[in-house]
């Protein structure tokens, strides 16, 4: 079955209908109508907020959406968008509006055209996008593991018998004595850094460095990365 061109999620205050697609408005509204009809009981009496992201939606299109919802007992309580003209259209229909949340808007921006990016920069947005990860604020002890789909930061030691892996980079603000695997999905540019680099095993992407080579043990801050198809550990002074 094809994925719906929208998603409906529960939030703190009601349901959020998110429309994030380049499909035609007609396709979207038809799929939505089918979905609501299929689960009449679940949605009757519900209150929806709709999130349109950067999509430009005309007043008539928005009116169609509202009609489809209302015919099925669903109230449209709010229109959220990053597009000025969509917000104008909503206001013209007397619907409350809200600007799309920045965090999500930023995520969208990566996909948006250079023109949009430039326009936002011109507006004086000095925030860098960065990339996500997880933070663990304790020593990671033997038998415990952390995995991150982004980067991983351990604020403490990684003890022998413990393991950290990350699709991105690994930063250990402490002594790395266990196993670390950066770039676990194959990213060879991933790095591992630690205040004390004494891993029992260090992996980056598909390469492994075992403890046996004592020259890789650094009692100082060090960084490990791939260079010429080999993992090299370099003390950072």
């Amino acid at each position: 079955m094809r994925d719906d061109p929208f998603s409906i999620k529960g939030s703190n205050d009601g349901l959020l209908l998110s429309i994030d697609t380049s499909e035609s408005w007609q396709t979207v509204t038809r799929a939505l109508a089918d979905k609501l009809d299929a689960r009449k009981q679940a949605f009757a009496g519900a209150i929806f907020k709709v999130e349109l992201w950067e999509r430009t939606v005309a007043k008539s299109e928005l009116r169609t959406l509202r009609a489809i919802l209302e015919r099925r007992g669903v109230t449209l309580s709010l229109v959220r968008s990053a597009s000025e003209s969509s917000l104008e259209a909503a206001k013209a229909l007397d619907l409350p509006t809200e600007l799309s949340k920045r965090r999500q808007a930023r995520r969208r921006r990566a996909k948006s055209s250079p023109k949009t990016v430039l326009r936002k920069m011109a507006l004086g947005n000095s925030e860098e996008a960065g990339s996500p990860g997880i933070m663990f604020r304790r020593t990671l002890r033997s038998g415990r593991t952390i995995h991150s789909d982004g980067h991983a930061i351990v604020f403490g030691d990684v003890n022998p018998g413990a393991e950290v892996s990350a699709v991105g980079d690994i930063v250990v603000w402490g002594s790395l004595r266990g196993v670390a695997h950066a770039g676990s999905a194959g990213d060879e540019t991933a790095v591992v850094c630690a205040l004390e680099m004494r891993p029992s095993q260090l992996k980056i992407a598909g390469l492994t460095l075992s403890q046996d080579s004592a020259k890789h043990q650094q009692r100082r801050p060090a960084i490990a990365r791939i260079h010429d198809q080999k993992i090299i550990v370099k003390a950072g002074d």
Binding site: R141, S142, G143, R144, P160, G161
Partner: peptide, 13 residues
């Protein structure tokens, strides 16, 4: 010490 470390992890958890 290795086993103590494991136990401490479980105690913390």
């Amino acid at each position: 010490v290795r086993d103590a470390d494991r136990i401490i992890g479980l105690i913390e958890a």
